[in-house]
Deep mutational scan, measured.
Amino acid sequence: MTEYKLVVVGAGGVGKSALTIQLIQNHFVDEYDPTIEDSYRKQVVIDGETCLLDILDTAGQEEYSAMRDQYMRTGEGFLCVFAINNTKSFEDIHHYREQIKRVKDSEDVPMVLVGNKCDLPSRTVDTKQAQDLARSYGIPFIETSAKTRQGVDDAFYTLVREIRKHKEKMSKDGKKKKKKSKTKCVIM
């Protein structure tokens, strides 16, 4: 069974824990209790493949930012979460993405942009803004509501699919490099 290491990042209060708990335990946590770091595991079937999701729910508070490099190193894919009623959390996505790329030393890291709290009427981040940002990053965008469960499975499952595509691409690139290195030079 394939294991996928997913990391949920975003500013404090955007609903990272609520999304994760909704996926794992099928219930909505409405009281806000700032996370330092929590880890969850769940076995699911995605596109006919049974897999184990190892999900790291991270601290959004700035005082825990020193811990970010460590979990970013171990993560295979990242859910970059903002709240649709919090423009600052949307603007912060850029910083999370840049930090992930720096730590992973790669421009090509599996990510999904997630606009959470889409059940709320007080939207300050337009869907088109988020779609445009995701398009500019070359990553999928999904709106979710941890409260109603809308888009929750889709967000995590899409990230797994992005990781699969990335692994497939990397193995193809690896095979191309191996083929090239088999060419021999004969000096007579």
Score class of each variant (00 low, 15 high):
Ile142Met: 04
Ser181Trp: 10
Leu113Asn: 05
Ala155Met: 15
Lys88Ile: 04
Glu49Met: 14
Gly174Tyr: 02
Leu53Ser: 08
Glu31Thr: 06
Val186Gln: 10
Arg164His: 11
Val29Phe: 13
Gly12His: 13
Gly75Asn: 03
Asp57Phe: 00
Arg97Gln: 05
Gly15Lys: 00
Lys175Ile: 12
Ile100Ser: 07
Gln70Ala: 13
Ser106Tyr: 09
Ser122Phe: 06
Ser145Asn: 13
Leu113His: 01
Lys117Asp: 14
Asp105Arg: 06
Asn116Gly: 07
Val114Ala: 03
Asn26Val: 03
Thr2His: 09
Ile46Phe: 10
Glu49His: 12
Arg97Ser: 09
Lys169Gly: 10
Gly10Thr: 01
Gln99Gly: 03
Ala155Asp: 03
Glu98His: 03
Val7Gln: 05
Phe156Leu: 05
Glu63Gln: 08
Gly151Asp: 05
Lys175Gly: 13
Gly75Phe: 04
Glu3Phe: 04
Ile36Asp: 00
Pro121Gly: 11
His166Gly: 10
Arg135Asp: 14
Gly48Leu: 04
Val45Gly: 12
Leu113Asp: 02
Lys184Leu: 02
Val7Lys: 05
Ile36Gly: 00
Val125Ser: 07
Arg164Thr: 15
Glu37Met: 01
Thr20Gly: 03
Glu162Ile: 09
Glu3Asn: 04
Lys88Cys: 06
Leu159Thr: 07
Glu107Cys: 08
Asn86Tyr: 01
Pro34Trp: 01
Thr183Ser: 08
Lys176Leu: 12
Ala18His: 02
Arg102Pro: 02
Gly13Gln: 09
Val103Asp: 06
Tyr71Arg: 02
Asp47Asn: 10
Tyr71Ile: 13
Arg68Tyr: 13
Asp126Leu: 06
Ile139His: 05
Gly48Met: 06
Ile21Thr: 03
Gly12Ile: 04
Asp47Glu: 08
His95Met: 04
Gly13Ile: 06
Glu143Tyr: 02
Tyr96Pro: 03
Thr50Val: 13
Val103His: 10
Glu162Gly: 08
Val114Ser: 01
Asp57Ser: 00
Lys178Pro: 12
Asp47Arg: 11
Lys169Ser: 13
Ala134Glu: 15
Lys184Ser: 13
Cys51Val: 14
Met111Ala: 03
Arg161Leu: 04
Gln131Val: 10
Phe28Trp: 10
Asp132Pro: 10
Gln25Asn: 15
Glu49Arg: 09
Val160Leu: 06
Ile100Ala: 03
Val81Gln: 09
Ile100Arg: 02
Glu31Asn: 03
Arg161Phe: 01
